[in-house]
Simulated assay, not measured.
Amino acid sequence: MRITRSWREQKVMLKLRFSNLSDSDFEFEEGDKESMMNNLANKLNKTREELMRLFIELQSY
């Protein structure tokens, strides 16, 4: 995946698209990004693959 948007931009775009997300949903400890991604997928009722497709989609806006 080619990343063209910053993490901050991606967070804002996801929060605009999914009003149930908050800043705390994007927090993670050093080396524990996988846990955050799993929590996001659960909160959005998406599979990890669907979540990854969302991030890829954000790169095309």
Rank of each mutant, 00 (worst) to 15 (best):
I3F: 07
I3H: 08
I3S: 03
I3Y: 10
I3K: 08
T4S: 06
T4E: 09
T4F: 09
R5W: 07
R5K: 15
S6T: 15
R8Y: 05
Q10L: 07
K11E: 10
K11Y: 07
V12A: 14
L16D: 13
R17Y: 03
F18V: 07
S19H: 09
S19Y: 05
N20G: 05
L21Q: 06
S22G: 10
S22Y: 11
S22A: 11
D23P: 03
D23W: 06
S24V: 11
S24D: 15
D25E: 08
E27S: 14
F28W: 10
E29R: 14
E29C: 07
E30T: 06
E30P: 04
K33N: 07
E34A: 15
E34T: 10
S35K: 14
M37R: 08
N38T: 04
N38R: 07
N39L: 11
N39C: 06
N39A: 15
L40G: 02
L40P: 02
L40N: 00
A41E: 07
A41L: 05
L44Q: 05
L44P: 00
L44S: 01
K46M: 15
R48K: 12
E49F: 11
M52H: 08
M52A: 12
R53E: 15
I56R: 12
I56K: 13
I56L: 10
E57P: 00
L58S: 03
Q59V: 08
